[in-house]
Amino acid sequence: MVEEKQQEEELSDERQHLDDETLFIVSQTFKALSDPTRIRILNLLCTGEHSVTDIAETLNLSQSSVSHQLRFLKNLRLVKYRREGRTLYYSEDDEHVMNLLKQAIEHALHH
């Protein structure tokens, strides 16, 4: 009981004292999720790994637009890639953010 209360107090303290780096990361994450094109790309990557060409064709976007958005998402460590020959295959890289995205989509669908 005492241990539980202490853990709650520590968690409360952490929430009240967010440092600048944490605030920046959180704001950048929400910035990433504020763009409809990035949401479409992340939603597609929830289904598995896709090449830039596949993403562009599936979402009816230009390859340069997809590449630009993927670079933004990669810099935030929301996506990762692997190279096979000359082709880059992208996949999700942050389960927490992907769960947040899925919950937001669920919320929008049932609101």
Rank of each mutant, 00 (worst) to 15 (best):
V79W: 01
V79E: 11
Q7S: 10
S12R: 07
E10S: 02
K80S: 15
Q28H: 11
V2P: 09
D20N: 01
H68E: 14
H107I: 11
I55A: 07
G85F: 01
K5Y: 11
I105T: 14
I105N: 05
K31F: 03
L44G: 02
S62Y: 10
E92L: 15
G85R: 01
A32L: 01
R77T: 15
S12N: 07
S65W: 07
L76G: 07
L101D: 12
E10R: 02
L109Q: 11
L18G: 02
P36A: 01
I55D: 12
H110P: 01
H110T: 14
D13T: 13
V66F: 02
D13S: 08
R83T: 13
K80E: 13
T29F: 05
D20Y: 02
T22V: 05
S65D: 13
V79G: 10
E14Q: 10
S65G: 13
Q63E: 14
S67I: 02
Y89W: 11
R71I: 03
Q7K: 04
L45K: 00
L88R: 10
E9A: 04
I25V: 15
D20P: 02
E92A: 15
E10C: 01
R77D: 15
T87G: 06
G48S: 07
A56T: 08
R40Y: 11
I41G: 01
Y89E: 13
L23K: 01
H110R: 08
S34V: 04
I105G: 02
R82N: 11
R71C: 03
S91E: 09
T58A: 04
V79Q: 06
E4K: 09
K74G: 12
T87D: 04
V2Q: 12
R82S: 07
T22S: 11
A104L: 12
S34Q: 00
E106D: 09
S27D: 13
D19M: 00
D35C: 01
Q28G: 13
L11I: 13
V2N: 13
L33A: 00
H110D: 05
R38S: 05
E8I: 14
H96E: 03
S67T: 11
S64N: 14
Q6I: 14
K31G: 12
L18I: 08
S12V: 11
L44A: 07
D94S: 14
H50M: 06
L101N: 05
E95D: 10
T53Q: 13
Q6H: 01
Y90A: 08
D93M: 10
S67N: 07
N60D: 10
L109W: 04
F24M: 12
